[in-house]
Simulated assay, not measured.
Amino acid sequence: MSLHLWWLYVTAVFLISATPGPNMLHVMTQSIAHGPRRALATMAGLMSAVLLCLIASALGLGALLKASPRLFDVLRYAGVAYLVWLGIKAWRAPVGGVGGVASRRSDRALYLTGLLTGLSNPKLIIFAAALFPQFIDPSRPFGTQLAILVISFVVIELGWQAAYALGGIKLACWLAPVNRQRLFNRATGVMFIGFGGALLGARA
């Protein structure tokens, strides 16, 4: 991979990761509910999803999804259903104290929720299936290129997740009143459902 191609990749990943989406929204809401330290489990789940999608794409899943629209549709509908479920759950989330009942969730539960959210992320699915393979030069060593691309993505994604998690800390104070919590929960629910709609409209 040439340096020029790597810079194009880094720029694309930086802009895609910076744009608010299910991953960043999920990190921020978990940081608000559980605090930044326990949100690390959520971030680990999201990053596991990133690694799985990018490696699977590099190994040929992206080409398979392009060749089989039906398989892509199955994955897309599953992702839509999960994002809509997250939206309904957020809309109906209890209020009356940031980090209250939800704080009793285990790190394993936070990790699994992060993993499923990441795997249903329309931006990640489309990037991994359609864009990621184009940055791999078949004339150069595959393993080295894959490592560079994956590590670059992980570093950039983690940076943005940390920024959104810290933003959640500041929002937690603002969300002390019950009416603001209810408004935030419903806005979050609408956004997750909106992301599900975006995924529903995606094409391989």
Results as ranks from 00 to 15, higher is better:
Gly45Tyr: 03
Ala58Lys: 00
Gly60Ala: 10
Leu71Asp: 03
Ala56Trp: 03
Lys66Tyr: 09
Leu51Phe: 09
Ile55Pro: 07
Cys53Arg: 06
Cys53Leu: 14
Gly45His: 01
Pro69Leu: 01
Ala39Arg: 08
Ala41Arg: 02
Ser68Cys: 12
Met47Ala: 15
Pro36Glu: 13
Gly62Pro: 07
Leu65Met: 07
Lys66His: 12
Gly60Gln: 05
Lys66Arg: 13
Leu46Ser: 12
Arg38Val: 14
Ser68Glu: 15
Ser57His: 06
Leu51Pro: 11
Gly62Gln: 01
Leu54Lys: 01
Ser68Thr: 12
Pro36Ile: 15
Ala58His: 02
Cys53Val: 11
Pro36His: 13
Asp73Asn: 11
Met43Gln: 08
Arg38His: 14
Ser48Thr: 15
Ala39Cys: 11
Ala41Lys: 04
Leu61Gly: 02
Ser48Cys: 13
Val74Ser: 01
Ala49Glu: 12
Gly60Cys: 08
Phe72Gly: 04
Pro36Lys: 15
Ala78Thr: 11
Ala49Lys: 02
Ala58Ile: 06
Leu59Met: 04
Thr42Leu: 04
Cys53Tyr: 08
Leu59Tyr: 01
Ala56Leu: 04
Ala63Asp: 15
Lys66Cys: 05
Ser48His: 13
Gly45Lys: 00
Pro36Thr: 15
Ala67Asn: 10
Leu75Met: 06
Arg37Ala: 14
Leu52His: 05
Ala63Val: 12
Gly45Gln: 02
Asp73Ile: 07
Leu52Lys: 07
Ala58Asp: 00
Leu52Gln: 06
Arg38Phe: 12
Arg76Ile: 09
Gly60Trp: 02
Met47Cys: 14
Ala78Cys: 11
Leu51Lys: 04
Gly60Pro: 00
Gly45Thr: 14
Leu54Met: 07
Arg70His: 06
Ala41Asn: 05
Phe72Pro: 09
Ile55Ser: 11
Leu40Tyr: 00
Ser48Gln: 10
Leu46Val: 10
Ser68Val: 06
Ala78Glu: 08
Ala67Val: 08
Leu40Thr: 14
Ala63Leu: 11
Tyr77Trp: 13
Ile55Cys: 13
Asp73Ala: 13
Leu71Cys: 03
Ala78Arg: 02
Met47Gly: 13
Ala44His: 06
Ile55Glu: 11
Ala49Gly: 09
